[in-house]
Nucleic acid binder design. Sequence first.
DNA 1: GACACCATACCAACTGGTCGGTATGTTGAT
DNA 2: ATCAACATACCGACCAGTTGGTATGGTGTC
Lengths: 213, 213
Amino acid sequence: MAARPGPAPRGRAARGSARAALIAAAHTTVRRQGYAATSVDDICAAAGVTKGAFFHHFASKEALAVAAAEAWTERARPMFEMLPHTKLKDPLDRLLGHIDFRFSMLHGPVDGFICFIGTMVQDAYATSEPIRLACEASIAAYCDALAPDIEAAIDAYGAPPGVTAPDLARHVQSVLQGGFVLAKTTNDPAIARESVAHLRRYILMLFGRGETA
Amino acid sequence: MAARPGPAPRGRAARGSARAALIAAAHTTVRRQGYAATSVDDICAAAGVTKGAFFHHFASKEALAVAAAEAWTERARPMFEMLPHTKLKDPLDRLLGHIDFRFSMLHGPVDGFICFIGTMVQDAYATSEPIRLACEASIAAYCDALAPDIEAAIDAYGAPPGVTAPDLARHVQSVLQGGFVLAKTTNDPAIARESVAHLRRYILMLFGRGETA
DNA sequence: GACACCATACCAACTGGTCGGTATGTTGAT
DNA sequence: ATCAACATACCGACCAGTTGGTATGGTGTC
């Protein structure tokens, strides 16, 4: 107790880190158990903080959920800005690069790649409008980030009538979310990879690069 | 299975109906709130039955969940046996008929068309292996029911290499589940209809009936 | 540069209420 | 009379949220 080591005491978490630790703990815990099945105590234990700290930073469990949804959006941002495929010249190559990147994430334990937003909105959309809205905003942000490349690909290569950029962006998100659900069901990511492979083939066909029967 | 001879008492729910009422209540309540957020009392209230009756018929909440998953599978069976499109001669027409039928269901309140299985497995797959397995069996039954028509369509029209019937059946299921998640997120089925429309176009292209850019 | 002052960050213990599940009583059909 | 099919009353565990308090770091004053 008397020992007062330098800047980072090893015994417990640094002061000021509780809020971030709680959000990170919410991400991992809710992804594993769902929102309703995750108690505030669970999150506190995972974050290594007490309940007092929790309610110092967040007015309610719901408020944490909203903050965690916003943090998740920020966490996903580098996927569109820092990855190598985002530097490709051809917009369709950028889109396919994104799909391939999402595909490459679908390995290992299911908890490691499933979407916090999709998991949470499933059992909170009917009980908490603030959470639902936060999740809607996060999904919309993802689609908005994906849409410009799709738009450019449509401009460059054309697309069948009725296919628009926002529309296709939402479909990409839909296939991913569906893959997560099935991966949870079978406890195996292979089924999600299959589905993303179908999505990739669809996009290739849409833009005239694919092969038909 | 068959109704007892003689009239049922008029005043309150017929004796012997509690089990079916509880399963039906589980379907509606879990679809709206998720599994973890649904209490045994909620289900009992929705079924118009007391807790004593609940635990007379089911050993636990988990046991009801498993029974409800099996009942859901049975409930979906007529979709493959009794609908008009199942009588079509062309297997691809039967498949498209099924897709169109699923599309036509995507109207009105979200609670009305989302999948009990997909909702429940989301927040129970990590905490209850029996529930996960029951949901896996239900999804597998759906895919098994869909696969023969796809197989026949592949035989009749051919398909790109790597596309198999079980594979594509799972993709159909995946797109549906993903559409449900996004419909919950936006509280609007339109987004799910869009996604199923993309799925339909993909299938048309796969089998050479589609148009590319 | 030392110290009073104070807002923030955090903690342990607790509360009223709800949870899944149980123990036991009552009813109705055979 | 018997037993399945319910209902009533209750239990310990756990839930989200509250309370009263302590530790920490920044700031103004001299």
